[in-house]
Amino acid sequence: MKVIFLKDVKGKGKKGEIKNVADGYARNFLFKQGLAIEATPANLKALE
């Protein structure tokens, strides 16, 4: 799953980066902790 990092995550990505991560890791950790959001077209446009 492609995500946009909202904060730096050690070993995974830095704020503003778009990367592929495992679906479960994204849903169960990154999204719940507020560290990333899904890289949807609307979210990508908002990032610009």
Rank of each mutant, 00 (worst) to 15 (best):
N20S: 14
M1D: 03
A39T: 02
L44N: 04
K14Y: 13
K32Y: 07
D8M: 05
F5G: 00
L47Y: 14
I4Q: 02
G24F: 14
N20L: 15
A22S: 15
A39N: 02
L6I: 11
E17R: 03
I4M: 08
D8L: 04
L35E: 02
G34K: 10
F31S: 02
N20P: 07
L30P: 01
G24V: 12
T40S: 10
A39D: 02
E48A: 13
R27D: 03
V3F: 00
V21Q: 04
L30T: 00
K15R: 12
V9R: 02
V3H: 00
E17W: 05
R27N: 08
L44H: 04
E38D: 04
L44G: 03
M1P: 04
K32H: 08
L6W: 02
V3D: 00
G16H: 09
A36T: 01
F5A: 00
K14M: 13
A42K: 09
A42L: 09
V9I: 09
L47S: 07
E48M: 13
K14P: 01
D23W: 14
A39I: 03
K15Q: 10
A36V: 07
V3P: 01
L35I: 07
K32G: 06
A46T: 11
L47M: 13
L6P: 01
M1H: 05
F31V: 08
L44Q: 06
K10M: 12
E17L: 03
K19L: 11
K10N: 11
R27Y: 11
E38G: 04
N43M: 07
I18G: 01
G24R: 12
A36K: 00
A22W: 11
K32A: 13
G13N: 03
N43D: 06
G34E: 06
G34N: 11
D23Y: 15
A36Y: 00
Q33F: 15
L35R: 04
K15M: 09
Y25D: 07
N20Q: 14
G13P: 01
G34P: 00
D8G: 06
L47V: 10
E17P: 00
L35T: 03
K7R: 14
V3L: 04
G13F: 14
V9F: 05
L47A: 08
K2A: 11
E48V: 12
K32D: 08
F31H: 01
G24I: 12
G16L: 06
A26W: 12
L35V: 06
A36R: 00
G11W: 10
K12M: 15
K10H: 13
G13K: 01
E38H: 06
K7M: 12
L47F: 14
L6M: 09
G34L: 08
N28Q: 11
G13W: 14
Y25R: 07
Q33H: 15
K10I: 13
K32T: 11
T40M: 03
K45L: 14
N20F: 15
D23Q: 13
K19P: 00
G13Q: 02
K7N: 07
A42H: 10
M1L: 14
G34I: 02
K2Q: 12
V9L: 07
L30F: 03
A42F: 07
N43R: 07
G11K: 06
R27P: 02
A42N: 11
N20W: 15
G34F: 09
Q33L: 15
E48I: 13
L6Q: 04
N28T: 10
N43K: 05
N43H: 07
R27E: 07
K10E: 14
I37R: 05
Q33R: 15
N20M: 15
N43G: 05
F5D: 00
F29M: 08
E48S: 13
L6S: 02
L47Q: 08
G13D: 02
I18T: 05
I37Y: 04
K10F: 14
F5K: 00
K12G: 13
T40F: 04
T40Y: 03
N20D: 14
V21H: 02
T40E: 03
P41I: 10
L30R: 00
D8K: 06
N43I: 08
Y25N: 06
F31L: 12
V21F: 08
P41A: 13
A39Y: 11
L6H: 01
A22M: 11
F29A: 06
E38F: 05
K45E: 14
K12S: 13
I18F: 03
P41D: 12
Y25V: 07
E17F: 03
E17S: 06
A36F: 01
G34W: 06
K7D: 07
K14R: 14
E38S: 07
G11A: 05
K32E: 10
K19M: 13
L6N: 01
N28W: 12
A39S: 04
N43S: 08
L30A: 01
E48L: 14
A46I: 13
D23T: 14
K12N: 10
Q33S: 10
D23K: 14
K45P: 05
I4A: 02
A46L: 15
A46F: 12
